[in-house]
């Protein structure tokens, strides 16, 4: 795709959204039979799976922590998730995202309840259209709750950015490519505590505040969808 003249025309973005609108969101909990907990998130063209195993015995043994469980995360993109085939396996980018994902999720988990054990989170990106790390964190939080791991709060995650000098919520691939700024954020929606904040590009001081407000608004919607996904898993069974 060639760089468009303008990314926002008459207050509407390339895909017809307003600047403060999320892409269509669909979250489902408990979709994988073999995992202890699982979830899928579809955010626009993004398709992400998350699977949680554990708490389970930690191997290798020397990585065990005597007083707490260890959270391990793997963010992985499928070779077919992007336009140009991605070479499979971990690369610099996915290793970094795995690390920040772990750090985004860790603060809400009661890891101290399960000493010497491990909790494994696997995030698989099946289709990518910018914002996969935030979609992955959103999915992982639902999968952790679905696995029955005790949590202080959920984690909801969304990206904000700047295109054509306007703050926008939830950037698409094209907006990310041609825009000025991309800032993924993860937070605990109940306490409004931020657990992940990265930024690629620039924001003026007041712009940053406005962007943050926008992200909080987006996370609020995502949080609602996450809670609904967890409820729906059991509501269907209730009607049987």
């Amino acid at each position: 795709m060639k760089k468009p003249e303008k990314l926002i025309v008459d207050g509407k973005r390339l895909d017809g959204r307003t600047p403060d609108e999320l892409r269509p969101l669909k979250i489902e909990a408990g979709i994988l039979e073999r995992a202890d907990g699982s979830a899928s998130v579809e955010l626009g063209a993004n398709k992400v799976l998350a699977a949680v195993y554990g708490p389970r015995e930690m191997h290798p043994r020397h990585l065990q922590q005597p007083d707490t469980a260890v959270l391990r995360c793997r963010y992985n993109m499928a070779p077919f998730s992007v336009d140009e085939r991605k070479r499979p396996g971990p690369d610099r980018r996915s290793v970094e995202i795995s690390k920040v994902t772990r750090e985004a999720l860790e603060p809400v988990l009661f890891l101290e309840l399960y000493p010497r054990s491990a909790i494994d989170v696997f995030i698989e990106v099946l289709q990518a259209d910018a914002g996969t790390r935030t979609a992955g964190i959103t999915a992982a939080a639902v999968a952790l709750a679905d696995a029955g791991v005790p949590m202080r709060d959920m984690i909801s995650s969304v990206a904000v950015g700047k295109i054509d000098d306007t703050r926008v919520l939830d950037l698409t691939k094209d907006e990310d490519n041609w825009g000025t700024t991309d800032m993924p954020i993860a937070m605990m929606p109940r306490k409004k505590l931020i657990t992940l904040l990265q930024m690629d590009g620039h924001f003026a001081k007041e712009e940053f505040g406005q962007a943050l407000d926008l992200a909080f608004k987006g996370c609020e919607q995502i949080y609602g969808a996450q809670r609904q996904a967890l409820r729906d898993k059991y509501a269907i069974k209730k009607g049987e």
Binding site: G54, D146, A147, G148, V149, R152, Y234
Partner: peptide, 21 residues
């Protein structure tokens, strides 16, 4: 802290989990 059914008995609060090891 978990997905479960609330079990409220007087002053006692417990959540019966639906999932977990």
């Amino acid at each position: 802290s978990v997905v479960g059914l609330a079990d409220l008995r007087g002053q006692d609060i417990q959540i019966i989990p639906l999932q977990g090891r």
